[in-house]
């Protein structure tokens, strides 16, 4: 049984746009997968279905044994607790400190303070930001903010980390650092990582599995793949 299984998956938005059209895809535990493709080809839609921000219109999306399409709204949180999500725009809360931001998922699960603290420290150590615990997001560089975001995603020790263009707002040097953090998480903790990116250099350097979409359809899926530009881009 694969960790992620997508079968004949269609997503048609309410406005009639078909974002994915008959996707078939399997991802095993511990894999590191890049998802690439021209803008608007359905990458974000694909991963939004993994964390049930969107429901497939047709077909199956199974994540860690949970059938996403059948998940009721009131139960979505159960899926979300099993995975971490990292965004291009960080989505940190400006009024909370680094510590509070990372502790946020655990607090909203109702964990005790004594249980929260060691996990937050561990997550911040994982991204190398333990000394910034009392800072506020705006006092940090973009790269550091993204590391806080990764720490928050990892604080609950998820089996799957989903990243939508995590380096999209970062310069090449900082991007490299972030990729090192992600690679470390993948290698040391065995966390499955699915990452959407436009960054050619990263994809080419990392030599991971690369899945390419075009108009909502999978057009190539290679182990140790290279970045390929869509024709005309």
């Amino acid at each position: 049984m694969k960790f992620i299984k997508i079968q004949d998956c269609y997503k048609v938005y309410k406005n009639g746009v078909t974002a994915t059209a008959g996707l078939n895809l399997e991802i095993s535990k511990g894999e590191f997968v890049f998802i690439i493709g021209a803008t608007g080809c359905g990458k974000s839609t694909l991963i939004k279905m993994l964390y049930r921000e969107e429901k497939p219109t047709k077909g199956k999306v199974i994540v860690g044994g949970i059938d996403v399409a059948k998940l009721r709204n009131g139960k979505v949180y159960k899926l979300r607790r099993k995975l971490g999500i990292v965004f291009q725009d960080f989505k940190l809360l400006p009024k909370l400190t680094v510590y509070e931001n990372v502790a946020f998922p655990l607090n909203s699960m109702g964990l005790k303070k004594s249980e929260v603290k060691p996990r937050v420290i561990k997550a911040l150590e994982l991204v190398g930001l333990k000394e910034k615990i009392r800072s506020y997001p705006k006092e940090l560089s973009a790269g550091m903010q993204q590391r806080v975001c990764i720490a928050r995603a990892m604080v609950n020790s998820p089996k799957l980390l989903i990243c939508d263009e995590p380096t999209g707002n970062l310069d090449p040097e900082t991007s490299k650092e972030i990729m090192n953090v992600l690679d470390g998480i993948n290698k040391e903790l065995g966390t499955t990582i699915v990452m959407v990116t436009h960054d050619k250099d990263i994809v080419n350097r990392m030599k991971k599995r690369v899945i390419m979409l075009e108009n909502g359809v999978l057009i190539s899926d290679e182990l140790k793949g290279k970045y390929k530009a869509h024709e005309g881009v």
Binding site: G74, Y77, L79, R80, S108, R152
Partner: peptide
């Protein structure tokens, strides 16, 4: 709204929200 969105993404239950 931002806080609520993030709460949802990190797995806060409806009850908590």
């Amino acid at each position: 709204q931002k806080e609520i969105e993030i709460m949802r993404l990190v797995g806060a239950s409806n009850f908590v929200i």
